[in-house]
Design a protein around this nucleic acid. Structure first.
Lengths: 285, 285
DNA sequence: CGGAGCCTTGATACCGTTCAACTCAGGTGG
DNA sequence: CCACCTGAGTTGAACGGTATCAAGGCTCCG
């Protein structure tokens, strides 16, 4: 069998424990302890054509508290993780100890894949809230792939999806303005929340401005200023960690904000039309 | 069996055919037509513990000329590619037709993985020189993985490697200055050439300044200026596509260039010491 | 209450982009 | 053969988007 991942007492009692927000009430105090293959595939959004649910193959759950590390850089790899509930971040640490946030895994996301190649984790995963994770011992997975063709395909598919995600990330960092990056970040968060069954219009950020900035290749000040600017022209409402999405279409197509000199007009026009549609002058190429 | 990938006559006679450079003399006019599994694993730098070379499993080669597309965005996916010889680029095209370069595959590199997830290619691959590629029909691969446990592991490993590479790319784009990006690009190119058996000290770029810039999230002017600056302080020598590496250590550790006002001193000191070692004042944090 | 993070906002500096002019090499056609 | 053209590369000048530095506010918690 496999050894439990180190719960890593280094950050034990941990800094700040977030208050349970409305969105997190679905999290159960003790959670379930085992999931079968069918539940796993559903969580991963994998089409499970032929039902292999009859199998009594079970996958163990583990709970982590806010601030705990799931794995650290260099730690021997032997298992992948799927998020059953909760929010995390994965980070790279550069030669001078600076964090680079790579992703914010949440319900249904797979992580730990970077460890396969060198047999050691290339990144670190940290719980941003209390989490319930499903352990996928890698040996077990490969064995399963050998007996179930479609499951093998699913594994490749999920890894391919991760790769495409990273590629679009590279593309974004290489080409988009700060405002466009923040806008897209909000849109993707909104969509993820919708997928998970939460509100796509009103949610709480689970990460700090600093972490968002690191993820988007910006400073925390720029993130803060950009959110304020979006708030000012009515695209969103911001109050600390709480975000309200007001105009998702504008956020989706936004490339660059109009100069601040014309923002006043924007706001005025916006207030008149209230909830009118399609602000075409924002989505300019 | 599988259908040949479209040779894509769209860019047929193609714009500029590069003159055969010294580094490319190894490329054979017609190339070999088939490779076996052992050759494939060696090319991919996969440890092939138990020899399965006795198998008469053969993989077909295909040749592409400079400028031809190997696959385009949206094209149905059914095969992966391994570079046997030649140089390529993979690109994403954004909503307004702008190219975003994602990678520069060369000998031993795998590409096409992004197509697995949606069954359609998410990116486009273009030959930057005449190329000899090995076709890996995906169906064949998965079948092989089911019968050979270690080969299955190798597949996961290669995909994991790609993911880690993309992650370090994200990290670079998010955190490093223009100069550091160009320096690292040169270092990684140098190392790749060494792996392939070419000179790591003197080589030709296969891509334009524009393509390098796109890859690194910079403009072509910035790339050009940075190369000129490196040349000026003696880290490299540049003449169009030809690059000579003079001080690989400085390139590896470079984070930011000293202000141009002090470059004159730099250069003078450097000339005096000639090929002396370790320019510590360059590699400042 | 006091302290520690986190967040916001302002002023300023600077890196990289943008726009523009020019050079260079290779290819084509008169 | 040379004139011409085109795409690539270099270099300069000016602008502007973000980072940086700094001050102050908010919230939670001891």
């Amino acid at each position: 069998m496999l050894s439990m991942p180190s719960s890593d007492a280094r950050s034990e009692a941990s800094s700040t424990v977030l208050p349970a927000s409305p969105n997190e009430t679905g999290w159960q105090r003790q959670g379930k302890l085992w999931s079968n293959l069918k539940e796993l595939c559903e969580l991963l959004r994998i089409p499970t054509t032929t039902l292999l649910s009859d199998e009594e193959l079970l996958f163990q759950h583990v709970q982590f508290k806010t601030g705990q590390r799931i794995h650290t850089i260099g730690q021997p790899f032997d298992t992948l993780y799927v998020v059953h509930s909760g929010f995390l971040k994965t980070v790279l640490i550069d030669e001078f100890g600076n964090e680079q946030v790579l992703s914010f895994p949440m319900k249904g996301d797979l992580f730990g894949v970077d460890g396969i190649h060198t047999k050691r984790h290339a990144s670190e995963a940290v719980a941003l809230s209390n989490c319930d994770l499903i352990l996928l011992p890698f040996k077990k997975l490969t064995a399963l792939g050998r007996t179930h063709a479609e499951f093998e395909h699913a594994m490749y598919s999920v890894m391919s999806r991760e790769l495409v995600r990273e590629q679009s990330m590279v593309s974004m960092l290489g080409a988009l303005s700060a405002e466009a990056r923040v806008a897209r970040f909000l849109v993707s968060l909104s969509e993820r929340y919708a997928e998970m069954g939460y509100s796509s219009k009103l949610f709480n950020l689970r990460m700090t401005r600093h972490e968002i900035g690191s993820y988007l290749g910006l400073t925390l000040e720029t993130v803060s200023r950009t959110l304020s600017a979006f708030n000012e022209i009515g695209l969103i409402s911001v109050d600390q960690r709480s975000i309200g999405i007001k105009d998702i279409e504008a956020l989706k197509t936004l490339r660059r904000l109009p100069p601040s000199s014309s923002r006043a007009k924007q706001l005025a026009a916006r207030k008149q039309k209230a909830a009118a549609a399609n602000p075409s002058h924002i989505a300019s190429a």
